[in-house]
Amino acid sequence: MERTTIDLWVGIFVALGFAALLGLAMKVGNLTTSNISQTYLVTANFENIGGLKPRAPVKSAGVVVGRVNDIVFDPKTYEAVVSLNIDTRYNFPKDTFANIYTAGLLGEQYVGLEAGGDETSLKDGDKITQTQDAVVLEKLISQFLYSKATESDDKPTKSTTASTESATDALDASPLDKIGK
């Protein structure tokens, strides 16, 4: 009698364990969401991939259509070769444009695909030729500063000289020598 109750409790315990593992896999993990069974592989060269990592999503129109498989450095062209696993359900034209975007201001980076107009579609092992690099924040800031500097090359100096002139005029005009008299 004692033993059967123990057996029951141990059975419940093990069942709970499996249920929790299943729950973790289904509800918490991406076993259900990233269930891309059949994929084809395409590569794309980028001059700068920023912070892109393997397993990052590949999105088109905001929908996840694949994952980044691997990133290697090509020592001949000095470019990053990114290989993408794309779901076989989705076909993309040969002149598809690949960008590296950032989700949010500080979010993770992903590859965005923009379909072109070609009638032949990408096959396994193909290469996407049109790419755009990741936006590097430092470059962006330096560009912004540079454009600001060229923009304000003459205008502000003019206005400042003008304002100082007008100020001295005002001073001259003001009856300073009459103060205190």
């Binding site: 593992l21 896999a25 509800k27 918490v28 993990g29 991406n30 076993l31 259900t32 397993r55």
Partner: peptide
């Protein structure tokens, strides 16, 4: 809460490695 969790927790890398 749930969708961000599902997008960032990997079944193999996180859950199986933890087990």
């Amino acid at each position: 809460f749930w969708s961000q969790m599902q997008a960032n927790v990997d079944w193999q890398y996180d859950i199986l490695n933890g087990a």
